[in-house]
Structures are given as C-alpha cells and as structure tokens.
Amino acid sequence: MINKIVASTTEALADVPDGATILIGGFGGAGQPIELVEALIEQGARDLTLVSNNAGNGDTGIAALIAAKRVRKMMCSFPRQPDSWHFDRLYRAGEIELELVPQGNLAERIRAAGAGIGAFFTPTAYGTEIAQGKETREINGRHYVLEYPIHADYALIKAEKGDRWGNLVYRRSARNFNPVMATAARITVATVHEIVELGELDPETVVTPSVYVKRLVKIPKVVRPITALKV
C-alpha cells in the first residue's frame, strides 16, 4: 500500500544533505511551508542554495535559516522587504550570494525543470543587466534571452488538503509557487492541514497529482499576521 504520510516534519527532512538545493514555496506568508523551514533549521544541513520568491521576513522561517548562516546562495526575485534585515546584513557583508531572478523567470525556470525542458527563450529582461552575459536570439522580430531550468534536490511546499498518495489541493493565493515547485525536485515534501481518504478529492480539481509528491505531513492550522509592504 502506498502511504506517503510521514509522522513529523523532522522525519520528512531527516535526509537533507549539506549543499542541497531547496525550493521553498510561498509568496509572503501565503503558502509558505514555515513548519518545514523550522524543521530544516533544527535538522542542521548547511551550505544550502535556497530558491524562493523572497529572502525571509523578520526573525523566523527563511530569515532564521539565513541568520544561522546555513544558506550559501539565495535565488529569488524580491529579497528586499521592510523586515529582511538578516538577508540584508549578510548580503552587504558579502556572506551570502544572491542570484536575482525576475519573478516570471523564476517560475518558468522551475516549471522547465519539472517539465524536462533543456532551456527556453524569454523576452523578459532583454536589454537589462539581468541578461548580461546570456545568449540572446531574435525570433520573428522579437528579442529573447536564453534561460536554464532550476533543478532542485528538495521542494518544501504547503498545500491545504492531501491524501495518502500525495494528491494535493491548495487554498486561494496560497497556491502561488507551490504546485510548480512540486514538479521540479527529486524529493517534494508537502504539508497539509487535512488528510482525506483516496477519492475524496475531486479528481477534476486536483492541482498537484500524486506523482510529484514523495512525503506528506499534517500540520495544524495557525493564523499568522500578514506582513504587507509599505505602500
């Protein structure tokens, strides 16, 4: 019998080695698998490459992992936040590497990895410093930049409900990067707030089919404060 449910976040991340590349879902607080990031902090793996939209907020989650100097490189689109002080400090001190990736390129490079695409041409960032040193091509009168996939060892994602095979559904804008990241890692670990019997998720509405998910952990639902950017 297939059963991808594991008892704890600790167990789910026990085998993460030093030097791993890890995709972390979420956009702001929505869909961020914070319990898995906390377990990763406890687990101790170092020299990590993290791929996530932001570079941590406040003193918890990704920010805490960065503060503990466990992250060698951050790949993200928007590191600067009102409360990204740990990343900011280490970046200015030259102690963390940053690969700044436009948000659509980040999503598409992850998607390409999951979909077996070798590289793709995108119009995004043509003529900007992000495209410097990259191959470009004119196709039908438009300019494109060649971008490569982002493959990962682990994807840490957050969903709303799942079953023991690993089918997942999400909730509202907490979906964001999670379903794309689920496809691009050797080992995808998902947290869910509810585990249901096989067949209870409407197959027409399953967002992440089970094939992409290796481990599933149930976690309680906690309402967290929303950190908005200053407008």
Partner: peptide
C-alpha cells in the same frame, strides 16, 4: 484572510467569477 493577498502582500478579496492559478500560469 492570510491566504488571499495581492503582490504587495496586502489582504484582498476575490470577485464572483475570479480565479486562482499557480505562479507559472500567472506569468
């Protein structure tokens, strides 16, 4: 609802007829 925010991470609502999709589809 902390699961329903905009790109500025501010809480928003969804109109009847609105939809959700993942980041690669969004871009």
């Amino acid at each position: 609802d902390d699961d329903l925010i905009n790109a500025g991470k501010q809480p928003v609502t969804l109109l009847a007829g609105g939809s959700y999709f993942h980041h690669a589809d969004s871009f």
